[in-house]
Amino acid sequence: MGDITVDIIGCGDAFGSGGQLQTCFYIHTSHSRLLLDCGATAYYGIKQQRINIDDIDTIMISHFHGDHYGGVPFLLLEEAIRRREKPLTIISPPTGKERITKLLDQLYPGSNVLGKLNLLFKTYITDGVMEADHLEVTAFPVMHTPDTLPHGVRIEIGGKIISFSGDTAWTPVLIELARDADLFICECNDYHSEAKGHMNYKTLLAYADQLTHKRILLTHFGTEMFRNREQIDYPYAHDGLRVTLN
């Protein structure tokens, strides 16, 4: 089915630790182009990497923290100004349309952005499979700030499985998310400190033998992870990295 490419637009935490932009991964095949999260600073990276916004047919949101979906209003505003006619699907936990509408009203009052675009909002089917635009998505609730409705996702696309933990502390759900994944993108915010709702590297190592992914890529580094980069045995993301699955 051809190569699947994952471009790292942004992989940083909420505070831009290490100078990295906020979370945004661009997954593209010959038949589908997907943004997985779109943090508030990620739109700069989309432009910097010269991604044609009109090519994007799906935006998938893991949870409702600004560093994971705060860039969506800017993308939608530009597409409305450009009078985009191509459909765009937004997949998220429940309340996605309502939250994005409120965010747009706060940032650009009176713009009526959603009324100018051909948008389809879809909601995760928890522990069930949802089909959209040449891909299948299975979503699992994870351990993060409950009000953000945090999810990890398994995406079947182009004959491959790309899994993303979202923001989460350790949970057995990660075992299922990582199972036989061609690429498992796993947040690892800290090295040994325990921040509520986030993974640390020492915990990840303790459960590593239960994660049966084919390939892993760590993301969402805080300052502690950057200070300990030489101690990390796993590959990790950086802005501008390209990963190809073939």
Rank of each mutant, 00 (worst) to 15 (best):
S165F: 05
D13R: 03
I9N: 09
I4R: 02
E230T: 11
T212N: 12
G16N: 14
T223I: 10
H28R: 13
I53L: 09
V243S: 01
G197F: 11
L119D: 02
E224F: 08
I90M: 03
A132V: 15
M1T: 15
G159K: 07
T145M: 13
T58Q: 08
D182G: 10
G158H: 06
R229F: 11
I162H: 01
E136R: 13
K86S: 07
D54F: 11
E194W: 09
I161T: 15
N200L: 10
I157N: 12
H134Q: 15
L119A: 05
S17F: 03
E224C: 08
L103W: 02
I53N: 04
R33T: 11
E194S: 14
Q49F: 15
K116Q: 15
S30I: 06
P172V: 05
D133G: 08
H31G: 00
I59C: 04
D127N: 14
L104Q: 14
H134T: 04
A206I: 07
I61L: 11
L75I: 12
A181M: 07
P93L: 04
C11N: 11
F74W: 03
S17V: 13
P146K: 12
C24L: 00
A14H: 08
T5P: 01
F15Q: 12
M130D: 12
H31M: 06
L177R: 10
L241S: 03
I216E: 07
A40M: 06
R83T: 01
I53C: 07
G152I: 04
T123D: 14
L103F: 03
H68Q: 12
M60N: 03
G70H: 02
H68G: 00
S32R: 09
L107H: 05
I161N: 03
Y236E: 09
